[in-house]
Computed example of a mutant assay.
Amino acid sequence: MTPDNIRSKTLPVAVNLGIAVVAFVVAAAIVLGAGIGNWVLVVVVGAAFYLVGLNVVAGRIEGKRAARNRAMQSLIYAACVLAILPLASVVWTLVSKGVARLDADFFNTSMNNIGARDPEGGAYHAIIGTLEQVGIATLMAVPLGVLGAIYLVEYGRGKFAGTVRFFVDVMTGIPSIVAGLFILSFWVLIVSPWFNNGQPRFSGFAAALALAVLMLPTIVRSTEEMLRLVPGPLREGSYALGVPQWKTILSVVLPTALPGIVTGIMLAVARAAGETAPVLLVAGGAAAINFDPFGGNQQSLSLFVYQQAGDASRYAPDRAWTAALTLVALVLILTVAAKLLARRNKLSR
C-alpha cells in the first residue's frame, strides 16, 4: 500500500474559496435583489450559506466528522472576526476623524477666550488635568488595592475577610456617578470648606478621590486573582529556608505575580481616565489651564470630549475627536510603558 492510498482526502483550498464566493454571490442576489437589506445582511446570509455549503461539500469529500470539524473551525474564525471588527472600527473612526486637529496648537493651547467662531483652541488644560487627576488617584488606589489583596490572599481568614470581599465585589459594579456624588457630599461640601473660609470648592483632587474609589475594587480583585495563581511550592520553599512571611511576599509572591498585577492596574487607570461624571460633579471643568489640583476648577480629557461634542460651534466636533484620540493614545502609552517596565524587572531577576 502506497502512502497516497492511506492518506485521507482533503478539501482543496480552491474548492473552499469557490464555496465562499458562490455563497456570498447568492446572498447578495437574494438580499439586494429583493431589497430587504444592505451589505450587513449580505454578510450574515452569505456566512450562513457558506457554512451549509461547506458542510455538504466537505461531508462528501472528507467525511461527516471532518465536515463538522471544518464547520466548527469556521464558526470560531467568524466569532474572532466579529470580536475584532468593533475594535477595528473604533480605531479607524478615531484615527480618521481625530487627525483633523492633530497639530501643535491643539496640544499647546487651552479653550480660554475661545469663542464659537474661533477655529483655534486646544486641550492642553484637559491633558494636564487628566494626568494630575489620574496620577493622584493611582498613587492613592494602587497601594491600598495591592495591600488589600495581599491581606485577603495571605492573611485574611474568617468573617472579616469575607465581608471585605463582599464589599469589594459590590464596589466593582458601582456607577461612576455614585462615586462622584459621594465625594461631592463628603469632600466638596463638608471637608473643603474647612480650607476655603467656609466655602465649598471644586478641585482636581476631589476628582482624583472619586476616581480612586472607582479604581480600588478593580485593583483589589485583579491583584487577588494574580496572587492566587502563584504556585504554593514557591511559598513553601521560601518558608523552608527560614524566610519570614512578609519577606516571602515581597521577594517571591509579588515579583511572580507582577505582570498580571500591572495589567489589572492599567485596566483601572484606563477606566479612571475615561470617566466623565465624577469630574463634572466635583471638578467642574474649566476653559483655562489650572496646574493646582487642590484649588479651583480643573478640566479632563473625557469631560473636554463631552463638552465639545455638545457644543454648537462647527469647530467643536474636530476638537472632540482629536481629544478622544489623544485620550486613547495616552492610555496606550501608559499601558505599553508599564508592560515594558514589568517585563524588564522580571528579566532582571
Rank of each mutant, 00 (worst) to 15 (best):
G310D: 08
V269S: 09
E225H: 14
L184S: 12
L51Y: 06
A273D: 10
E224Q: 11
F160L: 12
D105E: 15
P175V: 09
A88L: 12
P244C: 04
F167C: 02
V279H: 06
Y50N: 11
V328R: 06
A208D: 01
K247R: 13
G122D: 03
D292A: 01
V44E: 05
Y315K: 15
Q307K: 14
S110I: 05
A272W: 07
A338I: 13
P86A: 10
V305F: 14
G46Q: 09
G33I: 05
L334V: 06
V44R: 07
A78M: 15
G232W: 06
A67T: 06
M215I: 05
D292N: 15
V220Q: 04
P259D: 01
G148W: 03
S110H: 04
K346Q: 14
S300A: 15
N55R: 11
R228M: 10
A141N: 04
A286S: 13
A337Q: 03
A83T: 14
T172L: 08
W39C: 02
L334T: 02
P233D: 11
Q298W: 05
A66N: 11
A20R: 01
A338R: 12
A337P: 02
V279I: 12
N16A: 15
A27K: 05
I6D: 06
A123R: 05
S89L: 14
F106Y: 12
V142C: 09
F166M: 10
A316L: 14
W187F: 14
A337H: 03
G295N: 05
G295H: 12
A240G: 09
R65S: 13
A20P: 00
W39T: 09
L216C: 03
P143D: 02
S203C: 01
A212R: 04
D105M: 13
A329I: 12
N69F: 11
G162T: 00
L211S: 09
Y124D: 01
P86W: 07
V90E: 10
Q133K: 04
L41F: 02
V56W: 10
M72V: 15
G37N: 04
L144A: 15
M72A: 08
R314C: 00
V170S: 04
L303N: 00
A161H: 00
E62A: 12
F49G: 08
F304A: 07
I6T: 14
N290H: 09
N112E: 11
R68L: 14
V253N: 00
L139M: 13
V220D: 01
L340M: 09
L267H: 13
V168Q: 02
S89M: 11
L234R: 11
T93M: 12
Y50W: 06
V99H: 12
S251K: 12
V52S: 12
V81Q: 05
V213Y: 05
V22N: 04
Y315D: 11
A71P: 03
